[in-house]
Structures are given as structure tokens and as C-alpha cells.
Design a protein around this nucleic acid. Structure first.
Lengths: 235, 235
DNA sequence: TTGCAATTCAGTGTATACACTGTATGCTCA
DNA sequence: TGAGCATACAGTGTATACACTGAATTGCAA
């Protein structure tokens, strides 16, 4: 996708996309045009255009009231997106293996090695960049676009996996193996690794979700609301 | 995707998307904001927003000069998209088989039967609607979004297949088989049919492309330009 | 006639201004 | 006190207006 190149210029969409992907803007958070415009030092017009772009990409959702919010995904949707990601990524493997030059392989290896002992936040960023690079290498523009879109949608949710579960170590091990597979020109191995990569992260996220379900107070939203209401009435 | 629902209201994007998908606006054709605005009876602002939406969907491309055009795909890209379509569609099969009620099956059958002897243009429209319906039934929103996006991109190119090659008959036969598979709750069969469906169309398109390459006058564009120039000079 | 410069023009990018909608606030009246 | 109504406000949707850019066109000089 390469962001601004394909869709049109305004970097505003890029800034917002980044902020959403990195979790600086949380899912469900309202995106007020005037506020964004002011913060960015532009009028509402380019902001609106950015919001429409992001809405088409799925990371922003317009509600019935016309207001835009950061897209909020259900666990089922996140799960679905992980499946989609695995499917599309795996299919790109032959292209990657075919197109990667020795130089590319060396750069990938350097990239992966530089990730070995990073804090979760930085690692997540590098991880994102690494996968985009793989997409690029595949030479399949539309597969790459699709995968990038999916990645942007998942990111705010998958960071949890890294931070909480120290998934990072396992993922790194797989990254190293991927580089080996590419160097060995073994497309099937790479595809398998990519599939497994997603599958494991997906499992981890599911476990985390159910764990959280059990641990955290159940029926959080409605019960909390009820409690708040009761408190207000009581006060 | 359900078009306007997800992205935000302006029906302008829907109108343009339809026009592009149906080939009323040809690939490569410039989309002049003022012209569209005037034709639609609105100002340029909502037109711009629509263009940004469509650019993010891929059906419109902004050039370096800032101008928007109907996206033009290379044969390789079309081929890639057919592969992607097959991949995503097949993965939706289990969902379709699981969710389709008896009523859904009956409606699908009616839909397919009503397509049996239609002119290519109408058939293409129904075909599009039919596949969207399958996506909807799968219950997989993001797979459905992705597949719809791909469909929108391919449509202007795949119509050729139907019109020129009488592919329609084969496709119809497969549609009937798909309904049977759904009724029999055979997800694997449905997945196979969907894969084959795309695969055959893709093959037909490839053959058509190479055929055209051989048949049509080579270097069409430059030669036509040369002829036009010659004619002008002669007059 | 040809080459070049100045000018016009077509088209886009964005700011400002105004209209509309839903919601919250506060006021009145029973 | 509480229900109902009017007003104010926050936010969005869109039209108009102006600035900018690159390309075509014209006019001029050699």
C-alpha cells in the first residue's frame, strides 16, 4: 500500500493511521474533526479527507451520528483477521523466496538480529516494519496491500500479546527461521512458518482474552454502569 | 463492506464505484473533480471525499500530478487478484455452509436459476450480487470486505470473459453445483468449487489476453497516435 | 517560419463561512 | 418536586472563494 503514495497525498491520514496503529488513539475513541484540524494546524477539509481514507481502510468507523471513531474490533473479528493474515502471508512465500536477493537476505537477517533484545514497544515497531518488508519482497502488490491493511487493523490488539505474554521470544525464534528458509529458497518452509507465526499469536491472544474474561470483573460494562448509576442515585 | 454503511454516508462514492465497476468509466479515465461535482449537482468537497474513499479501496488512483483516474491494472495484477479472490472465497466456505438456513438455500437457488439465460451484462450484475450474498452468509465480515474489494477491482476486466468467451454457461453450471454443495452442507466441495470457479475464469482471461496480444495490431497506442497524426498532417 | 518568453487556463488544495442536526441545559408550569 | 418545552451548543456537511501549479497558447523577435 505504501500509504500516501497509493491513496493520495495528505500526510494527515498517515499521521492518524500511525497513531491508531500504535495505540496512541484507543479503539472507540471519538475523532473530532475540529480538534484534529486544530492540532494539525489545518482546516477541517483535509482532516475529513483523511478520515474517509481511513474509514475505507477500516481503521476508522463512522457512526450513525456521523461522528468518526477509532474502529473497535470484537475478539471474534480480531481472530478472523489473524486467520486472514495467515492465509495471505503464507501465499506470498513463493514470491518472497523467488525475489529476495542475497543482499535482501542479509538485510533481513540484520533486521531480525537487531530485534533480539528489545523492549516490547520498539520490538513491535520493528516487527511491523519487518513484515511489511516481506510483503514488499513478494512482489505481489495486492496481496501486500491486503496484508498491510489487516496488519493495521490488528496491531492495536496484538501489542498486548507481546507485552503481556513475552511472546516476543518465540516470535523472534521464528523470525530467525524465516530468514533461514528464505536463504534456503524453501517457499513451503517459509509459508509454514508464517502460518504458524500467526497461529501461535492468535492462540496466545485467545488465551489472554479468556484469561482476562475470568480474571477481570465479569460483565464489566453493564455492571460498572449499573454500579455507577446506583452510586449516583444513592448520593 | 456494504459500501456506504462502513465508510460514511456520501452516496457519491457509491455512484462512482458502481460506474467504475460496470465499466461505464474506463480504466485510466481521468476523474475531474469539477466535472463530477457539476454532474452530481454538488460542490467539489464531497466529490473529493468520495475520491479519497475510492482511492483507499483501490478503484481510483491519484497520479503524481494530483489528478485522480480510474485505476488501471496490468494483466499480472488482474491475475494476482483472481488468485487472491479464490483464496479468500474458498476460506469462507465453512462459514457459508454453517450459517445458510434452508430459506437462504432456497433463495440462492432461485437467484441462480433466474440467471440461467441472461444477456452477459445482466448476468454479470447478478453474478456480482450472488457472490456478495455468499460473502454475507459466511458471517466473516473482514473476509467479506476483502473479497468485495477484490471483486470491485476485477469486475471491469472480468466482464470481458463473459462477453467474449461465453464463459457464462460454465460458470452457471458451477453456480448450480455450489447451491447443491451448500444444501448438502459440504464445505470442502463448496470451497473446491469456488477455487475452481476463479481458476477457470482466470485461465480464460489469460487466454483471452494472449489471444488479443496476437490478434490485435501490435503497439496499438503509438500506432494509432501515429495514424492520427498522419491524418491530421494530411488534412 | 521557427524559437522562446509571457500569459492564460485548467485543475487541484485548502481556508472560511454558513446551514443543519442532535443533545444537553435550564426554565417554566403544574 | 418533577415533567415538558425552549434555548444554546457541539459537531458535522457543504458551498463559496482564493491560492497555487503545471501545461497549453499566444505573441513577439530573429
Amino acid at each position: 500500500m505504501e500509504a500516501s503514495t497509493a491513496t493520495g497525498r495528505p500526510p494527515i491520514a498517515d499521521v492518524l493511521r500511525e497513531a491508531i496503529r500504535q495505540g496512541l488513539l484507543e479503539p472507540g475513541q471519538p475523532l473530532i474533526q475540529t480538534a484534529i484540524a486544530e492540532a494539525m494546524g489545518v482546516s477541517r477539509i483535509p482532516v475529513r479527507e483523511a478520515l474517509y481514507t481511513l474509514a475505507a481502510e477500516g481503521v476508522v468507523t463512522f457512526g450513525d451520528d456521523g461522528g468518526a471513531r477509532v474502529t473497535s474490533l470484537s475478539p471474534a473479528e480480531v481472530d478472523e483477521l489473524w486467520t486472514l493474515r495467515a492465509l495471505v502471508e503464507a501465499e506470498m512465500a513463493p514470491g518472497v523466496v523467488r525475489n529476495a536477493t542475497e543482499r535482501d537476505v542479509a538485510e533481513l537477517r540484520a533486521l531480525v538480529e537487531a530485534m533480539d533484545d528489545l523492549d516490547p514497544a520498539t520490538w513491535s515497531e520493528r516487527n511491523y516494519a519487518l513484515h511489511l518488508e516481506l510483503y514488499r519482497l513478494s512482489g505481489l502488490r495486492h496481496f501486500a496491500d491486503t496484508a498491510e491493511r489487516v496488519l493495521n487493523l490488528i496491531e492495536p490488539y496484538s501489542r498486548v500479546v507481546v507485552t503481556v505474554l513475552h511472546e516476543q521470544t518465540e516470535a523472534q525464534a521464528e523470525h530467525h527461521q524465516m530468514v533461514e528458509a528464505i536463504e534456503a529458497r524453501d517457499a513451503d518452509a517459509l509459508a509454514g512458518l508464517l502460518r504458524h507465526h500467526s497461529h501461535r499469536a492468535r492462540q496466545a491472544l485467545l488465551e489472554y482474552a479468556t484469561e482476562r474474561e475470568r480474571t477481570a470483573e465479569p460483565r464489566e460494562t453493564t455492571q460498572a454502569a449499573a454500579r455507577a448509576l446506583a452510586q449516583r442515585l444513592g448520593a
